[in-house]
Computed example of a mutant assay.
Amino acid sequence: MARHRSSHPSSAHELLGRLGRLTAQALDHAELHRARVELAMALQRGLLPAGLPTAPGLWTAARYAPARNGLDIGGDWYDGFALPDGTLAFSIGDVQGHDVEAAAFMGQVRIGLRALATGAVDPGEVLGRANELLLSMAGELFATCTFLRFDPATGELSDARAGHVPALWASADGRCGIEDDDAGLPLGILPGEVYPVTRRVLSEPGAVVLVTDGVVEGPSFPIEEGMTQVLSVVRAGAEAEPGRLAADVIKVAERTGHKDDAAVLVLRHDGFHERTGGTEAGTAE
């Protein structure tokens, strides 16, 4: 009678040998993945600004947190810089993807916005030019973004959104809200996209807070509840030191069980009512 050789190990020694080889392969894969994650983290932090600009009556702060599980890293950013005309520009955004490529693409978007802002005062025009620039690169990634311009002389804050999470605001007298104004599509999706601009004067003391979706959305609750939680934090901290407020907002991300990285940008202001006689009402163009 012919005998068929079994594919199973014939001894404990062979079993242990096979297990050892599989373990070594798994460790090599884990080490490679960990190295990739660490590289993405280093690249992310190296591309974020070391500091943010301020102005008389305006204080700023930001926070960044990697994904809770340590795997999804690289796409979120915040930025702030002074423009030649004396105004200040700020941006926050989120690149599709969470790896080294996303981190590198994030750096390109951030640098591109800086360059374009020097030649275009209007935030909508800045985003429009950035959109065309990304499309010309023929890449596969896209980015959501909010771009703001603040004029210290008038207290006017103008902004435009490219598919990004709306800004939240609160004043010292207890009023608060979500600036769910019109927005264009994310950058890098459709040629010729238009990005409406909202303008408002920061007439009363308070805070304007911008976040990425990693702060407000995760397995624990949907984005609507996350926005409500952040708005509550912003209302309670409208007069707080901006670094403290940013730290309190980023804690909401911990409660979402987020699988995405997260960023927060805070603009805390004393109010410009006496200088301008303006109002806080925003108007979309």
Results as ranks from 00 to 15, higher is better:
3 R>D: 09
3 R>A: 08
4 H>V: 15
6 S>Q: 09
9 P>M: 12
11 S>A: 14
12 A>P: 14
13 H>V: 15
20 G>K: 11
21 R>V: 10
23 T>H: 14
23 T>I: 10
30 A>S: 11
32 L>D: 10
33 H>D: 12
34 R>M: 02
34 R>D: 06
34 R>T: 00
37 V>C: 12
38 E>A: 07
45 R>G: 08
48 L>C: 02
49 P>I: 01
50 A>E: 12
56 P>S: 01
56 P>H: 02
62 A>D: 02
63 R>M: 10
68 R>H: 11
72 D>V: 01
73 I>N: 00
78 Y>L: 04
79 D>L: 05
83 L>S: 10
84 P>T: 07
84 P>M: 05
89 A>I: 06
90 F>W: 10
91 S>C: 14
91 S>D: 15
94 D>H: 13
96 Q>N: 06
104 A>D: 11
104 A>R: 07
106 M>P: 01
106 M>C: 00
109 V>T: 06
109 V>C: 12
115 A>N: 01
117 A>D: 03
117 A>R: 02
117 A>G: 04
119 G>Q: 01
124 G>P: 10
124 G>Q: 08
125 E>M: 11
127 L>Q: 01
129 R>S: 02
130 A>G: 13
130 A>V: 13
134 L>I: 13
135 L>F: 07
143 A>G: 09
143 A>V: 03
143 A>K: 03
148 L>M: 09
149 R>L: 13
152 P>Y: 07
156 E>K: 03
165 V>C: 06
168 L>S: 04
169 W>D: 00
169 W>Q: 03
170 A>W: 05
173 D>K: 04
174 G>A: 00
176 C>F: 06
179 E>C: 06
180 D>S: 12
182 D>K: 11
182 D>Y: 10
184 G>Y: 03
185 L>R: 07
186 P>G: 11
187 L>G: 08
187 L>N: 10
188 G>S: 14
188 G>A: 03
188 G>Q: 14
191 P>M: 14
191 P>G: 11
195 Y>F: 15
196 P>I: 04
199 R>N: 12
204 E>D: 10
206 G>D: 02
206 G>C: 05
207 A>M: 11
211 V>W: 04
214 G>P: 10
215 V>M: 14
216 V>S: 09
219 P>D: 09
221 F>C: 15
224 E>M: 02
225 E>A: 15
231 L>N: 01
244 R>H: 09
246 A>E: 04
250 I>A: 03
252 V>T: 13
253 A>T: 13
256 T>R: 02
258 H>V: 10
263 A>Y: 09
265 L>C: 12
269 H>S: 07
273 H>F: 05
274 E>T: 13
278 G>W: 00
282 G>I: 06
284 A>V: 06
